[in-house]
Write a protein that binds this DNA or RNA. Structure first.
Lengths: 242, 242
DNA sequence: CGGTCGATTGACACCTTTCAATACGGGTGG
DNA sequence: CCACCCGTATTGAAAGGTGTCAATCGACCG
């Protein structure tokens, strides 16, 4: 049973910019349906040219690139509210793959109707560009983290950002939220080996900074964790919801 | 003496998508003037809200973030054809700083006229989004490089991409092109220490893979260098020119 | 000529990776 | 019902890449 855009639970989140009623109507007509996929399902493949675009409604996933020798780099975690497939829609093919790590529900949009954004709804086209800029901004932060932080700091940074995102969309309560990834996923995201990631997680746990166990992340004191990461505790930039 | 958009030398480059005559006229009217700056000049500051946007015409620069403790992460090198200030234009403020490392000539656009893109010229708005997607794509590649490659591979990767870009805009001839950065800049871009960068450069030189000296980069055999980087030698994705 | 900036080198410490082995839970087939 | 297999998490030890500290050198400049 598909959710009506007008009643989309994500709209209540503080993270997203408001829609005008007209925008909501427009998105509704643009929406083809809803889709549920199992953990492990690959939604989009690098180099593919999907006829569809998505917005994550529920569940988690990740974007990643695969290298020639089989290793992979996780570019980004996918959370509810994220728009998926922009690159394919614009550049013709995906620069990375997208996979679900938990059960996911997605809004499905038709790529063919995509162009009408730019012709008939300039505000929505503007939002799309904004979204791309937000992604770039975040990726710049990730790059900085990998380049300048030690493993402990990098994990701390990641957990702070994750917790902030979780709080802003109502996934987190009192510093506790679900986090459906394997240690290998996090290792690939931060450019660390699995073994070292595991040991660094143990260190964060013993210092009572963050505890990630059985798909549950708990952070007793976000400020202390941010301190370890050497980051300012700023709120996430607002972003459009497609 | 300002260059007319219709005679912009960059249009002849294979890297950029074509403009329609109408697009060219539109950009011309949007262009406020030209600007020349000295090496070392900061064009945009992180957190600032510039009233102007730029396209690099000549010269080189870099985008970077500064950390609390004074270190910095170089996000991207700036080459002729790059659009500067999109984040400020969209999100209100820059997520990074932009600095010239050589003398630069820039096209100056007025941010106020920016919005007319989306209302009156949907194709150009589309290009803008495309541009943001290309940047994100490239940053994903950089992230992969930092996360998965060793120092030797990372430098090789960087030089391949730089040489490709140089060739596509006519800066490089026979594997030789100007490259106006310090070793420290490249170190900050790849998340390496200055010392290690220096030693790795020496290694590339002794193996006759790449020689970067006195602002000149020379690569005798691009394929061999790409091989060291462990990358496929694909051509750069086409991008819009603003 | 002293001073500054960027490039270069050597030695050493440290973070991270790699190799190996164990533990634990869930699923499957005998 | 139990043995077996597989994916994930953990742990120890050794090897290797990278960072830090320090000193030298050359070019440019006031």
């Amino acid at each position: 049973m598909a959710t009506a855009c007008a009643h989309c639970p994500l709209h209540r989140s503080s993270l997203f910019l408001d829609h005008s009623p007209d925008d909501t109507r427009f998105m509704q007509q643009f929406k083809v349906g809803e889709m549920t996929i199992d953990p492990g399902t690959t939604l989009l493949m690098e180099g593919s040219n999907s006829p569809q675009l998505f917005t994550a409604l529920r569940g988690m996933g990740l974007r990643y690139k695969t290298l020639a020798d089989g290793r992979r780099q996780v570019l980004n975690l996918v959370f509810p509210g994220d728009f998926i497939g922009l690159q394919a829609g614009l550049m013709g093919e995906m620069g990375h793959s997208v996979q679900a790590t938990s059960a996911m529900t997605l809004c499905v949009f038709d790529r063919a109707g995509f162009w009408s954004f730019f012709r008939s709804h300039p505000e929505r086209a503007f939002d799309l560009t904004w979204l791309a800029a937000v992604e770039e901004h975040f990726m710049g932060e990730a790059l900085t983290s990998m380049g300048q932080r030690t493993a402990l700091g990098a994990l701390a940074w990641a957990f702070v950002r994750i917790m902030q995102r979780g709080e802003s969309i109502g996934l987190a309560k009192d510093g506790i939220m679900p986090l459906a990834y394997r240690q290998q996923d996090m290792a690939d995201a931060l450019g660390l080996s699995l073994v070292h990631t595991n040991k660094t997680l143990a260190r964060l746990r013993s210092r009572q900074l963050a505890n990630w166990h059985d798909g549950i992340l708990s952070v007793p004191n976000l400020e202390k964790l941010a301190d370890v990461a050497g980051m300012e505790l700023e709120s996430l930039p607002k972003r459009p919801l497609m």
